[in-house]
Amino acid sequence: QVALSRTQVCGILREELFQGDAFHQSDTHIFIIMGASGDLAKKKIYPTIWWLFRDGLLPENTFIVGYARSRLTVADIRKQSEPFFKATPEEKLKLEDFFARNSYVAGQYDDAASYQRLNSHMNALHLGSQANRLFYLALPPTVYEAVTKNIHESCMSQIGWNRIIVEKPFGRDLQSSDRLSNHISSLFREDQIYRIDHYLGKEMVQNLMVLRFANRIFGPIWNRDNIACVILTFKEPFGTEGRGGYFDEFGIIRDVMQNHLLQMLCLVAMEKPASTNSDDVRDEKVKVLKCISEVQANNVVLGQYVGNPDGEGEATKGYLDDPTVPRGSTTATFAAVVLYVENERWDGVPFILRCGKALNERKAEVRLQFHDVAGDIFHQQCKRNELVIRVQPNEAVYTKMMTKKPGMFFNPEESELDLTYGNRYKNVKLPDAYERLILDVFCGSQMHFVRSDELREAWRIFTPLLHQIELEKPKPIPYIYGSRGPTEADELMKRVGFQYEGTYKWVNPHKL
């Protein structure tokens, strides 16, 4: 086992960053958080920038500027975001240094004079007029057009580079997404736009490419001749908990499936790229999406959770019991969808996408189930092999396979070949997804960000279904809070070829 401390991990990262040409360590950078008073800024962006600063992973002359409508001070920003920093008493001095680099400007999102004030403020910072500028839009999409237009007109660096990070949702359907994309691309070049999907920053999602293309053993079996089906799962054990009003506007397909799960599907299904260059990788992902037809209604199961009468606390409440959810809402909190990649490698292999709230566990994984062994000599005792990439929690890679049961006879039983990170790298604290992705933006690497043509294809696949749901308002199937979801989803999976045995229990190697 390799035991690495946080300091050692960050030392390795620093070495990698400083050796590259793309990370300008000594240049002045300004990180501007648009929507600095909001939840995302408070819980994710400010803490992430602090962790990067604490670990010495930001360029040395980096300033952080918050911008929002609320009249706040840096002290206010500190008060609301610091509880999420997880700072230790030993880091007190470092924390003071961090907040000394912070400033805040209040202004409207659609007022040109406010942006001119913001620009004057940035120019007044040390070497601010020639600094590289990175704008993070932690804002609702309704203000994107006004904000990007004003940034472009008043706040661009004339000497350094300018980059803009856009948070999902990128529209509600193909038409609104196209409108937003066309607007942003009329102001910024594609190499300046970073559409963030934080799932692409997760260690195991990034590991998929290495697993596939750096190991000879997987190449020959990664196709329709050997793989019976692919299941991509995202499960949350909690409901909307008072935030249903926002969720109800989008629903589970827009929230998770059309982005996170579809991105994971691309990494499983794509061909080997010409290189690890950002556009070479994204070219292959677009090719996969172009091979997927629009979702067919007979390959869809929609569910909505109801309270568990035997549960406790939140578990007793259904989705419609959330006071922020519109009365009688038919918005799905669970969806199972089957897609097919219609190309030579994957023809006929079902890709089953499942996601839901208020389920029995927290889990995100990719599961490849292989065909049955031909010419069975073990009297149907063999179960199908599976390769599982567990994204969260407890990152893991393992192969479910058959071995001989101890004893006199040739009785096979299920076991696993474990390729888990935790076994080799004991207690290594890896940077989280937002840390990686923000560092990628500083480096100018777009590999783990969504390109406009990729986004367009993703919406093309799901828009007809979303429009049909909005028009017909089908009643989702009720499922109990804390269950596996509607049984109809299991029946759909069985119908397209997935075999669920229920006889195997994964042993978490992190707890051995």
Rank of each mutant, 00 (worst) to 15 (best):
K285G: 01
N360H: 06
L353W: 00
P412H: 09
D490P: 02
E488K: 09
N411W: 06
A336N: 14
W459T: 03
M270W: 02
D432G: 10
A269D: 05
K475C: 12
V388E: 03
K505P: 06
D280G: 07
G313V: 08
E284I: 07
T330L: 09
E416V: 03
Y479W: 03
I480L: 14
R367E: 04
D418G: 11
L339C: 15
L353M: 09
L430H: 08
I253Q: 05
F498V: 12
Y340E: 12
Q258D: 01
D321C: 08
D255E: 02
V341D: 00
E314N: 11
I477T: 13
V306M: 14
E395C: 08
Y425F: 14
I352F: 07
E488I: 09
D255P: 02
E312D: 15
V450C: 04
Y398S: 03
F498S: 06
P273H: 01
Q296C: 13
C266I: 05
N385L: 03
V366I: 14
K494M: 15
S278Y: 10
A458E: 11
M493Y: 11
M493H: 09
L289M: 10
D372G: 11
T316C: 13
R424H: 03
M402N: 14
M408N: 04
P309K: 15
V428H: 15
Q381I: 10
D376C: 07
I480F: 14
L466W: 00
S415G: 15
V288T: 11
A297C: 14
N259I: 04
R451T: 04
V391L: 06
N360E: 08
A364I: 10
K272S: 07
Q258A: 07
G407E: 09
Q296E: 12
G407I: 02
P464Y: 07
K285E: 00
G318E: 06
E312A: 12
W459C: 03
R390H: 12
E470C: 09
E435D: 08
P309E: 15
L387D: 02
A332N: 07
L302D: 02
C443A: 12
A364Q: 05
I377D: 08
M447P: 06
D321A: 10
E488N: 09
V300I: 11
R384L: 00
L267Q: 08
L417N: 01
A269M: 04
D372E: 12
F351W: 06
D310C: 12
H371S: 11
T487R: 14
G444D: 08
Y479Q: 02
K429N: 13
I352Y: 06
Q263H: 05
A396V: 06
V338G: 11
V337Y: 06
D321W: 06
F351L: 05
R460Y: 06
R254I: 02
G485W: 02
K287P: 01
C443I: 11
D310E: 14
E271F: 00
E365Q: 06
V300P: 05
P350W: 01
N360D: 15
D322W: 04
S293P: 12
S445L: 15
K400E: 04
H467C: 09
N385S: 04
K494R: 09
P478L: 07
L267G: 06
L267P: 04
C291F: 09
R436H: 06
Q446R: 02
P406L: 06
R451Y: 03
R495W: 09
G502T: 09
P393L: 03
E344Y: 05
P474Q: 11
I477R: 13
I292Q: 02
R495N: 09
V256N: 05
M402Y: 04
F449K: 02
L262E: 06
R456A: 14
R282L: 00
Q392E: 03
G311V: 09
D280Y: 10
A336V: 15
V281C: 09
P393I: 04
L267R: 01
D322N: 05
P350L: 00
T316P: 10
H260F: 02
G482V: 00
V341F: 07
V288Q: 07
P486E: 01
A269I: 06
P326M: 06
P273W: 00
K426H: 08
A364S: 11
P476F: 01
Q258W: 02
G307D: 10
N360P: 06
N423G: 07
R456G: 12
R354M: 01
R460V: 06
R282K: 04
L289Q: 05
E365G: 04
Y305Q: 01
A433F: 04
R345V: 10
C443L: 10
S452K: 11
P474K: 13
E414S: 10
L289V: 10
T463K: 00
L455K: 03
C382E: 08
I477K: 15
T330M: 14
I480P: 10
G482F: 04
L417K: 01
A274F: 10
C443V: 14
G313P: 09
R424G: 03
L262Q: 08
D440H: 07
N308T: 09
N308V: 08
G502W: 07
L417H: 04
W346M: 02
V349H: 01
W506H: 05
L353H: 03
K317Y: 13
P478E: 12
F498M: 15
L359Y: 01
T330N: 15
F334C: 06
K405E: 13
F409M: 13
D321F: 06
C443T: 12
T330E: 12
P412V: 09
D310P: 06
R390M: 07
I438G: 01
Y398H: 02
A374G: 09
I377W: 10
V373E: 12
V286E: 09
E435S: 10
L387G: 01
C382P: 15
R424Q: 05
H467Q: 11
E365V: 04
N394W: 09
A364V: 12
R460M: 06
F498Y: 15
E395P: 08
R436V: 07
L353R: 03
C443S: 09
T331G: 04
K494Y: 13
D322C: 07
G422R: 15
V337G: 13
E472L: 14
W506A: 04
P476L: 06
F449Q: 03
R460G: 08
V397L: 09
T333Y: 04
E457D: 08
V496M: 09
A458D: 01
K426I: 07
N299C: 11
E365N: 05
V281W: 01
C382M: 13
L419S: 05
S445T: 11
R384I: 02
S293E: 12
E472R: 15
G422M: 14
N411G: 15
V373T: 11
V428R: 12
F442S: 14
E501M: 10
S293Q: 13
L262Y: 04
P273Y: 02
K400R: 10
R456F: 07
